[in-house]
Design a protein around this nucleic acid. Structure first.
Lengths: 142, 142
DNA sequence: GCTGGCGTTGACGTCGGCGTCAAGGTCTAC
DNA sequence: GTAGACCTTGACGCCGACGTCAACGCCAGC
């Protein structure tokens, strides 16, 4: 199988495959004419890479999984190094999620404060009382 | 006030300030010798920028807030455009958090499956999908 | 033999938010 | 008059994961 077919079957691009090879992540054999030659095992490796990428892993983090498969293990995560990467990624995701949630709270607080201030100012300007019942409509509006 | 003092008072660097000026975000007046000259209002603008950045806003997203202050409003979020940015950012954060949580679940599932497999118990599962969330400037890998 | 569709390597561009020189100008203190 | 602490502009570097040329080679079909 040549590079174009492999790329298509894995749902990626030839450029990506050459990049992986450049990283030593997915080395390719060569046909007589210099074309890269891949087989089903390479497709397996590539799918491992893509699955992990989709789950938020960087390319370097996929390396232990790929090497694990290349070493003949049944799964990319059959090796200790892969499990270690899982653990690190879980911790990373947890921290990341916590940070985002904290940011979300801050933004939501500021937003609501600003909306109240706006309604307050509008009320002062128009000389009327602020509406008390309709904050939730602000949201769905967009 | 010159650039070094402003940077220090806002907890940033002179490089960042020149960059903001380059973006037209924080224009500076010039002293006779060509040095940038800032005042307390600039410090206010800069603090607005930094606060938003810390909350995960990109520099372009801070622009409406800065312009709002420059237009003489009491707060950076006194203007409709700023509120709109708040809304967009909240939606963005929500989506991002959801994706990361989904990714976390998948990784956790894979991890546990792999551990069970290692311990000799057989089980299988699979999954797919895209997470990948880019956010604030300061998340370091661990 | 010629077109068209594959493949090859190499190299530069992208995005954000600056860091880090380099080469020089300005101002103050001693 | 000179050190050194500030300032100026300009330009390249960085991180990841490729995209996008450019210029060429290989091979099948007509």
């Amino acid at each position: 199988m040549r590079i174009g077919e492999l790329a298509e079957r894995a749902g990626t691009t030839t450029r990506a495959l050459r990049y992986y090879e450049q990283l030593g992540l997915l080395p390719a054999r060569r046909a007589g004419n210099g074309y890269r030659a891949y087989d089903e095992r390479d497709l397996r490796l590539l799918r491992q890479i893509r699955t992990l990428q989709d789950a938020g892993f960087g390319l370097e983090e996929t390396r232990p999984f790929v090497e694990c498969l290349q070493a003949g293990h049944p799964e990319g995560d059959s090796c200790p190094a892969s499990l270690e990467v899982y653990r690190r990624k879980l911790a990373e995701l947890d921290e990341c999620i916590a940070r985002l949630q904290e940011a979300r709270e801050r933004v939501a607080g500021q937003f609501e404060r600003a909306v109240r201030a706006r309604d307050g100012l509008a009320a002062e300007a128009s000389g009327q009382r602020p509406p008390q019942c309709g904050l939730s409509t602000e949201w769905v509006e967009e």
